[in-house]
């Protein structure tokens, strides 16, 4: 679909007159088409699944007395669904500002290794740190999974542009979805919500497996899945963080073992 759209967009833009020297105009045109290419991921299955999750979030916010404007403000500024749910839980539980911040910080630590792994994938030869800091706001699980899968097929110097299109569109569309669903106060039977909430883990499960470039990612994924229930039982407050670290260690052991086998 995209391969057809790009020459079309380039064709439209070729007719308009740019007040730039030829090479700059060319560069801008390429950038714009990569931005649109990233933005068009809004029509992908994972983006649709994320929107259904936000439909559920709008209902959750309104049940807990958070206003329409407050709920949309949360989605745009925080942009991590678990952190939003934790924050609303803390608000309705009467937490202090500090207590709520700690609870949200614990749920958001996972973003640190995710962003650290994403940045080497996304940065180009001349990318400024400020650009990366700005774009990092748009990294959450869905954008991360899509990005890790797609960025390798995007030319290096166009990757930040591509991700800007993807990230900004994903965040602003979902902010809008929450506002509209909240306003219409759309109500569905519980079985619909249950089915919608189950889409997210199933999509992540399949696409995370499919986007892996080598065995080590599969090892990390399986160890994360299996270790989580045990770690949740032992240390519920730090379960995700410890699962990440333990899964990382298992994977490192696997990588070392592979190297030893290949070069005895």
């Amino acid at each position: 679909m995209l391969a057809n759209a790009l020459p079309f967009i380039a064709g439209i833009m070729a007719d308009s007159e740019f007040p730039f020297p030829q090479s700059d105009a060319e560069d801008l045109r390429t950038k714009f088409s990569w931005f649109l290419s990233g933005a068009s991921m809004i029509f992908s299955i994972p983006a649709l699944i994320l929107m259904t999750a936000h439909v559920g979030f709008a209902g959750f916010a309104s049940e807990n007395g958070v206003s329409l404007l407050q709920a949309t403000f949360m989605v745009a500024t925080i942009w991590a669904l678990p952190a939003n749910i934790v924050l609303i839980g803390a608000i309705s539980g009467g937490y202090s500002l500090f207590g709520a911040a700690i609870a949200v910080a614990l749920s958001s630590i996972r973003l640190m290794p995710m962003v650290a792994a994403f940045v080497p994938e996304m940065r180009g030869p001349k990318t400024r740190k400020f650009t990366l800091l700005f774009l990092s706001h748009f990294i959450a699980v869905t954008a991360w999974v899509i990005g890790m899968e797609r960025l390798q097929h995007v030319p290096r110097n166009m990757r930040t542009t591509y991700f800007a299109g993807l990230g900004v569109t994903l965040t602003s569309t979902n902010t809008l979805v929450v506002a509209i669903v909240y306003y219409l106060s759309t109500d569905f039977p519980p079985i619909v919500f249950a089915a919608l909430f189950f889409l997210t883990p199933m999509y992540f499960l399949a696409s995370l497996w499919g986007s892996a470039r080598d065995r080590s990612i599969h090892v990390a994924m399986i160890s994360g899945l299996l270790l989580f229930p045990l770690i949740h039982y032992l240390a519920p407050a730090y379960d995700l963080l410890l699962t990440g670290l333990a899964g990382g260690l298992v994977t490192l052991a696997y990588v070392r073992w592979q190297q030893a086998r290949q070069h005895p």
Partner: peptide, 8 residues
């Protein structure tokens, strides 16, 4: 690997 295990 840490990020992947975390998402898992």
């Amino acid at each position: 690997a840490v990020a992947t295990a975390l998402v898992a």
